[in-house]
Design a protein around this nucleic acid. Structure first.
Lengths: 202, 202
DNA sequence: CAAACTCAAATTGTTGACAATTTTGCGGGA
DNA sequence: TCCCGCAAAATTGTCAACAATTTGAGTTTG
């Protein structure tokens, strides 16, 4: 299912994902307005799908919308807000990983390893948007699998947290951390998984 | 500002708010699909604004979207998911109320009392959608004022939490609880505000 | 009788056009 | 020089039409 990587027609989902990783990677500056027309041209679609993507990203909190004035990149979060968010994300993701270990089947483990590999490749290619996207996809995998209810809430947190500090760690550190997390999951070692997760989300 | 209650042209924001309170009030059943055309007719607009509202509500987590199949009402959350959400919401709203007490000016306090009054009226009129909407507006006031960054995250939590248990308390209890919260805020008594808030969010 | 196929109806996805609003640039006057 | 207006340009808001996809009833076929 959905194995068409060459297909170049952008649906609203893809546009949303691309814009999100651009946002996380810091390709836009804070408070910068995003114009529907220019992005429509960039992706070769009309304004409809762009508006859809804007609305999703607005709800996630990375964009701000004002009536008749469109959207702009959200301003940076304060340190105390960031602390609250990290605590929430950590609590949430701990619950999800714990549950994921319980319910994951072989097929999930296969997908997990693919996502990890994709993340490593992005790190080695040193493409920041790619790293941001695959990092998010990896975490999103176990969150979504554990609870479709918590996933949108988690996504909003993760995006905002990553937006500012995405350059904090070296790619080598990131690879090692995610290696440890996935390894613990595959071994179904809950305790260790939660421990290494806590080190990753800071 | 925005005092035009008779104005019958629905912008996407209003449509979104109306649908959200209907959702919270339980007007739709779980897994029920929502059709763009029928809602477009109901609100007297085209499908565009309806789609916008769907995307926002999907991101908040009360609707689920599937490609080419539209949206449907999200299924009920499990008890352990609910616990996680309540914890997160409480932590978040505590932070916001505490900050709100620090930064609120007279104008905010005026608005707060208006929102409380609106909530009481809805309770006495016994209109469940109205109660849901004004309850949310009241809490949203101090959250939004404290942090526009945390607001969308808070909204997603609050909606999902309220969706299932909105009939749990009597309206008299709700009025009393909110009276206490607002009273504590106006007196700038942080400790008491956080205490009564904890009793309200369960 | 059940499974598979066919085709029409219903629904979503996308687009381009037009209306409404906001922003921008340019003079004119104190 | 500064500060209004005012009109043009840019941008968002909404709509109706058409394309693509899914659904469902009816029919055929083994």
């Amino acid at each position: 299912m959905s194995i068409d990587p060459i297909k170049s027609d952008y649906t609203r989902e893809k546009i949303c994902d691309i814009l999100r990783s651009d946002l996380i990677a810091g390709k836009f500056s804070h408070d910068q307005p995003l114009r529907e027309i220019s992005l429509a041209k960039r992706f070769g679609v009309s304004r409809g799908p762009i508006r859809d993507a804007f609305l999703k990203l607005t709800q996630e909190g990375s964009l701000v919308y004002e009536t008749n004035r469109g959207v702009r990149v959200h301003s940076a979060i304060a340190d105390d807000e960031r602390k609250i968010m990290i605590n929430m994300r950590l609590e949430l993701e701990k619950y999800c990983i714990s549950k994921y270990i319980d319910i994951a089947v072989q097929k999930d483990h296969d997908e997990l390893e693919i996502l990890l590999e994709r993340f490593k490749c992005a790190c080695l290619r040193d493409s920041l948007p790619g790293v941001a996207e695959s990092d998010l996809s990896l975490h999103r995998h176990w969150v979504a699998r554990a609870s479709s209810n918590l996933e949108p809430i988690w996504l909003g947190l993760a995006v905002r947290i990553l937006m500012k500090y995405s350059r904090l760690k070296t790619f080598e550190e990131s690879i090692e951390e995610h290696d440890k997390i996935v390894e613990a999951i595959l071994l179904k070692n809950k305790e260790r998984a939660l421990l290494v997760l806590s080190a990753n989300i800071v």
